[in-house]
């Protein structure tokens, strides 16, 4: 079932946060996922790696129910995903994307706190959480009253991460979230992201086409090609023992 050679971590002994069991999905005649089975280990950062069109964003969008499988089961937090309860489930999942998608009509503060307010958090709890996030993300408080359109790209990306982490999610999904950041600023945002992640202690699934980013941020890797898993396992293991020439070519020359 496309589950190869996982080295020290086998599919039996990991606590898994997300499990795909023979998931297939077609959209307007195009195969996105092809009978795909895979697991995402809990409390680790998993990089979903692949060329564009490999199905990596589709995989991510199945986790929070933006896409529903034609067949197969998506399991989340130990239970099959309940598509009637998506709003509740999504509040336990942070989400940040390459386009960032900050709401332009809301201040930075409103963007970050929107979900907490809708969830009925007390003002004091909101303040404390915002303070915590800003400190870790190295965002000055003065930005709170400004509108997203007046921020730099890096600042917007950090605000997007703060918004995704506001409700202390158990799972954080990142869809090419750092691709828009210029290469010079990227090391800084990687560092701040790691700080945020370690503070949040949540599982992370990040989709990327950038092997260097995967290696910098993730411990676990899933390599996708044409809607199929080429190899999944600890990243170090993927690098050392590629299952095939495709995986090998992906990682060649990418070891720091």
């Amino acid at each position: 079932m496309g589950w190869h050679n996982v080295g020290t971590v086998t599919d039996e002994d990991i606590d898994c946060c997300v499990r795909f069991d023979r998931v297939s999905k077609q959209l307007s005649g195009q195969i996105l996922l092809d009978d795909l089975s895979v697991r995402v280990p809990e409390r680790l950062t998993t990089a979903v790696i692949g060329a564009s069109g490999s199905g990596k964003s589709s995989l991510l969008n199945h986790i929070n129910g933006l896409l529903q499988p034609d067949s197969g089961v998506v399991e989340l937090f130990g239970q099959p995903l309940d598509y009637r309860q998506l709003s509740e489930i999504r509040r336990r999942i942070g989400y940040a994307v390459q386009e960032i998608g900050l709401f332009p009509h809301m201040s930075v503060a409103a963007n970050i706190t929107l979900m907490a307010r809708l969830a009925g958090w007390a003002e004091r709890r909101i303040d404390e959480r915002v303070e915590q996030l800003l400190t870790v993300a190295k965002l000055p408080r003065e930005l709170l009253g400004r509108y997203p359109g007046t921020l730099s790209g890096g600042q917007q990306q950090r605000v997007g991460l703060c918004r995704a982490l506001m409700l202390e999610p158990e799972l954080l999904l990142l869809d090419e979230a750092f691709s828009g950041v210029d290469p010079i600023a990227r090391q800084d945002i990687y560092r701040d992201f790691i700080a945020l992640r370690d503070q949040a202690k949540c599982t992370v699934v990040l989709v990327t086409h950038d092997i260097r980013e995967a290696v910098s941020l993730a411990q676990y890797g899933i390599v996708l090609r044409d809607g199929l898993v080429e190899q999944a396992g600890e990243l170090a293991d993927l690098v050392r023992n590629p299952a095939n020439s495709y995986v090998e070519s992906l990682f060649s020359g990418q070891i720091p």
Binding site: V97, G101, L114
Partner: peptide, 13 residues
Amino acid sequence: DPVLSRVATALGL
């Protein structure tokens, strides 16, 4: 912008 709608959905609104 469809991105904003997608993000809003994914955040759990």
